[in-house]
Amino acid sequence: MEIVTSIVAGILFMTATYLMLSKSLLRIIIGTGLLSHGAHLLILTMGGLKRGTVPLLDEHAASYVDPLPQALILTAIVISFGVTAFFLVLAYRSYQELGTDDMDQLRGNDQK
């Protein structure tokens, strides 16, 4: 199973990178969304899958799955939500002010 999820995570990373390298703002934001999904899957996979029951101690099971990646992912999910919202508003505001969503025209550098 780990191999399957590894490949899925790899594909998520790949598509995310491809989208982030493109020139349209919305594509970049969608790319970051995919990237965070990929990262979550990666962390979960690295911690090992299905090696016990749910990490709730009142289950009284012999073994539990690793709770640490879950805690990490939980934080990451919420953070990536905040970041996505921020990106979206940033994108729409800059489009509103500057009239373009082409990254080549949104170049932030004074040196001509």
Partner: peptide, 13 residues
């Protein structure tokens, strides 16, 4: 914080 943040974002947008 979660309620405040989520609602701030959604409401302002």
């Amino acid at each position: 914080v979660v309620v405040g943040v989520t609602m701030t974002i959604i409401q302002t947008i």
